[in-house]
């Protein structure tokens, strides 16, 4: 297990004048895994990524990326790390292929080798037919795939993707995630990606870190996290009933397995240990209330954050 961590972050902090963007973050990413940084906008994910690349200076703490400190050895770190920024941009007046070749030239890759790699990568991301068209004709999803090819041309050990699925249609997201998964499996490439979308991330990440207000509040495989968080009430029922009076709520709370209820007007959130939708519906109707909506939810990131703010665990 010596040096099995490709990214090591130890006590990392970044403070701006007023705000602490990242607060004493300690985290390790293992070689060959897909790690997801999850958190709402403004949680400090991008700032952390920028510090990993040496593009922002940490206020305190240590970082090691592929054995290098990005603040002091930025070139060595950048040779090993591919970074796909949120909303990646290309030179619109150049073709996709020329954009890749330019990146290759900046990485001192020989021209003949670069051409070969560009051809191969364009094929891999499914852009061969559009390779010699100007980037301004590309769609958002195509640009994102070109971005992936762009960071792969230097053959990095780690790729860092900042909100890679932002603003792409569901089909595009599916393709992109499949591509990332494939890269990880075929080449053993380590992937660090940030997202605010739990559903997308849980499809491909081996482990995730939850980020709220600059703090890492939990890290581990997603199933463990969800299980740890919601072992008291793993099922959430959402109910809309009219009128939703105190008596109704009391009756619902009396149903076995229901642990607690939150009320927002006529909308009730029922947290329970077992799926008891039938019992809940029965109780509402028995009370003479009109049931207009009943659904069972998976936990989203919202609930997870919410739970943390409540001091759940």
């Amino acid at each position: 297990m010596i040096n099995d961590n490709i990214i090591e972050i130890d006590g990392l902090s970044k403070r701006y004048e007023q705000l602490t963007a990242v607060d004493r973050l300690t985290l390790a990413v293992r070689r060959g895994e897909i790690f997801g940084l999850l958190g709402p906008n403004g949680a400090g994910k991008t700032t952390t990524i920028l510090m990993l690349l040496g593009l922002a200076e940490p206020t305190a703490g240590k970082i090691k990326v592929c054995g290098f400190d990005p603040a002091f050895q930025p070139f060595l770190a950048k040779e090993k790390v591919g970074y796909l920024p949120d909303e990646v941009g290309f030179y619109e007046n150049l073709s996709g292929r020329d954009n890749l070749l330019y990146t290759a030239a900046l990485n001192r890759i020989k021209f003949s080798a670069a051409q070969e790699r560009a051809r191969h990568l364009l094929e891999q991301v499914g852009l061969t037919s559009k390779a010699d068209e100007k980037v301004q004709t590309y769609s958002r999803g195509m640009k994102q795939r070109l971005g992936l090819a762009d960071i792969l041309i230097k053959e990095p050990e780690v790729i860092i993707l900042d909100e890679p699925t932002n603003g792409i249609d569901p089909e595009g997201v599916r393709e992109l995630l499949a591509l990332i998964r494939k890269l990880n499996q075929d080449k053993g490439m380590t992937v660090l990606l940030s997202s605010h979308n739990l559903y997308q991330v849980q499809q491909i990440c081996d482990r995730v870190g939850l980020f709220v207000e600059g703090k890492l509040i939990a890290a581990g495989p997603i199933k463990e996290l969800a299980f740890g968080l919601f072992k008291n009430d793993p099922v959430l029922l959402e109910v809309e009933a009219e009128p939703a009076g105190k008596q109704l709520i009391a009756a619902l709370e009396a149903i076995p397995h229901v642990s607690r209820i939150e009320q927002k007007g006529n909308r009730l959130l029922i947290f329970c240990r077992q799926p008891v939708a039938a019992g809940v519906a029965g109780a509402i109707i028995k009370h003479g209330a009109r049931l207009s909506h009943l659904s069972q939810h998976d936990y989203g990131l919202d609930e997870i954050y919410h739970r943390y703010f409540e001091g759940g665990i």
Binding site: L55, F75, L76, Y83, G89, F90, Y91
Partner: peptide, 14 residues
Amino acid sequence: SRGTLSRLLAQPIP
């Protein structure tokens, strides 16, 4: 504004 600056800076160049 084209979003190319951060991509450039992620390359191993001063």
